[in-house]
């Protein structure tokens, strides 16, 4: 009996060690090394966009939040419908999670005005405070796409007139990229959702202790 009790205690101790030492998601991107030898991780720069309700969206909007970023346009006939389905699936999985936000950047700044983005968001039945559909200065959007490991460019030959990658990017509280996936592939998105959970656990652990 004593042995049994002992082994249960050991098991519990081991188990608690296990959960505490869960491997963290890596910080992705090519870091800069300063003259002092400090490592500067790849960080999303400041941005200034406008959301579906005409409200500004900056780094302040996502302060204290983990967020997912992607690039799309509302009239995109090729990969976006699948991406939007997958993003909505993530949204539904984390509907109760207050610390998670979504920013979908439109790369069609000509057509996707604020009212167009508003109509799109309304039709998707989502919380506008949680999921931002943003537009803004075209060059700023195309340039920040690179910071988010995405490419976006105009291409007459592409379906809908724009070419872009369908990656979903996970960003932590410090503006670092912690995970990404192919937003057109449900299996890749399944793995991504586990990464989101992991990052949320890390954030909660840091805030409580």
């Amino acid at each position: 009996m004593r042995y049994l009790l002992g082994s249960v205690v050991v098991f519990i101790l081991l188990w608690s060690c296990q959960t505490q030492s869960e491997t963290k998601l890596p910080i992705l991107g090519i870091p800069d090394i300063t003259e002092n030898g400090d490592t500067l991780h790849h960080t999303i720069p400041e941005f200034n966009f406008i959301d579906q309700n005409g409200e500004p969206v900056t780094k302040e909007t996502v302060e204290g939040k983990v967020y997912i970023a992607d690039f799309f346009f509302t009239s995109c006939p090729s990969i976006c419908p699948i991406m939007t389905r997958e993003m909505k699936r993530i949204y539904q999985q984390f509907e109760e999670e207050d610390q998670l936000m979504f920013i979908s950047h439109s790369i069609d700044t000509r057509h996707d005005s604020v009212p167009v983005l508003k109509a799109y968001a309304d039709r998707l039945n989502i919380d506008h405070d949680k999921w931002k559909f943003v537009t803004g200065d075209k060059s700023e959007i195309y340039s920040i796409a690179n910071d988010y490991f995405n490419v976006a460019f105009e291409d007459e030959d592409a379906p809908g007139g724009y070419d872009h990658s369908g990656r979903f990017i996970l960003i932590d509280l410090n503006g670092h990229i912690r995970a990404f996936c192919d937003g057109t592939d449900p299996e890749s998105v399944d793995v991504f959702m586990k990464d989101i959970r992991k990052l949320l656990r890390e954030v909660n652990q840091n805030s409580t202790g």
């Binding site: 419908p81 939007t84 389905r85 909505k88 799109y120 309304d122 039709r123 998707l124 039945n125």
Partner: peptide
């Protein structure tokens, strides 16, 4: 399945 998607499609 031909069900469309939300009110979008």
């Amino acid at each position: 399945d031909g069900q469309g998607f939300e009110n979008l499609y």
